Amino acid sequence: MRSRRKESKTVPCPEDDQGVMEVGEEELISKYRHITSIKILFIVVCILITVAISGVSMTIGSYDIGFWESYGIVIDHLLNGSDGSMKDFVIFDIRLPRICTGIVAGAGLALCGVVMQSTMKNPLADPYTTGISSGASFGATLAMVAGLTIIGGNYSIVINAFIFALIPMFLIMTISSVRRASSTMIILCGIAVMYIFNAMTTVLMLLANPDDLAAVYSWQVGSLESTSWESLTVMLVFVLSGSVILNSLAHKINVLSAGDESARSLGVNADHLRLLCLLIVSLVAASIVSFTGIIGFVGLVCPHMCRMIMGSDNRYLMPASMATGAALLVACDLIGRTIIAPTILNVGVITAFIGGPLFLYLLIKKKKEVW
């Protein structure tokens, strides 16, 4: 006789399921915290790199100042005020304003780039896609060549560039108010306005004398050379205010990645949010471009670099892009000052030389879609 063995059936116990669920939740929480710590570490590393590059940049120039000595001068000046020495004058009146302008401008342009790309859902969007740079270029060219300025004085060119940089934004917002303000429509309107202002700028340059033409060309390339604490203060106010507002809207901007209809179902008005971000980005970018001229690729490359490392969560992507942009622009300015010294290359030239190949490398290397 053959004995039959009864097959035992295991019935899942609710207590066991609860235990498994708790273990799974703990693993997910642990993994989330680990990823978050890596993102925060990346931001901290970028900030430390910016500080280190700034220290090196303070040592570059005709007046010899050591690396650690430059930091000592900065700390002593902040704690005790100026001691009236030549080294203090060189650091605080010549070199440090340029470095700080590079930090603020790089952070602001990168912030504008990541917000534009996230709200428009377009990897090629940057602060200049909306025609901001072309408007500022026309305003500056109008002041340099034709002498037509909104106000007189030392800041006539800056005011012209700032006002004309905002004109494309107002044109786009006016057109968008008539029709639905989709991301594609905003970008196409910006490109159309950009070509119009570029055409008018070209006409003015054809009529300019050689001296004015050289000044216009130098401004269009972009430079940190003619910066001061006064101009830095203006930029800092716009960049700091814009970064606070945009970072507070990061969770809403994340919702836009799911599509406009999904955003509306979650209580987010995609059209109004997109126009608000466009307004803030235009003000921040215009404040930077008015003083530094046109500096390209920072707002395009830095968000892509950070997105491939950190993902698309704007709560971490925005500060990471700002830290990366600051480090990149200060490094590019340092390279421009040293590569063929004593001749100084404008920082816009260096960003184009570095940003173009770097952008191609990132596109070729990336293994998966991040959009």
Rank of each mutant, 00 (worst) to 15 (best):
A125N: 14
I163V: 15
R179L: 02
L148T: 10
M205D: 02
M205C: 06
M116Y: 13
K121Q: 15
I172F: 09
D211H: 10
Y155G: 01
I196E: 01
S183Y: 07
T202L: 01
Q117F: 10
A140L: 11
A146N: 14
V115W: 12
G131M: 12
R180N: 00
P210N: 12
S182K: 06
I167V: 09
S118C: 06
I187R: 07
N198I: 09
L148Q: 15
L207F: 08
C112A: 10
I196W: 03
S156M: 06
I132P: 05
N160Y: 06
G139N: 05
T129F: 08
N122Y: 07
S118F: 07
Y155H: 08
M169N: 07
L171M: 01
I150Y: 10
A214N: 02
V115D: 14
G147C: 14
I196K: 05
S137M: 13
T174N: 12
T129C: 09
N209M: 03
F162G: 08
F162L: 08
S134D: 00
T141N: 15
L124N: 12
G152Q: 11
G131F: 10
S156P: 01
P123N: 14
T174A: 11
A143I: 13
N160I: 01
A140R: 12
M144K: 11
A143L: 15
T130G: 12
M205W: 03
T184I: 14
Y128D: 14
I132W: 05
F138E: 08
M120S: 14
F162Y: 10
L142P: 00
A140I: 13
D211Q: 11
L142Q: 11
I159N: 04
N154Y: 09
N198C: 09
M194I: 03
V115H: 10
T174E: 09
C189P: 06
M185P: 03
A215Y: 03
I186N: 01
L207K: 04
I196C: 06
L188I: 12
A161M: 12
F164R: 06
S134R: 02
F138T: 07
M169P: 02
F164M: 15
M205A: 00
G152H: 02
S134H: 07
I191G: 06
I151C: 09
G131P: 13
F197E: 02
A181M: 06
I175Q: 05
V158L: 07
G153K: 04
W219F: 11
G147E: 14
A199H: 01
G139D: 10
C112T: 06
Y155K: 04
A199W: 05
V114Q: 09
I187F: 04
I163Y: 01
Q117T: 13
C112V: 06
S134K: 07
P123S: 13
I157K: 10
G147L: 15
M120I: 12
S137I: 13
I187K: 06
V178L: 05
A165P: 10
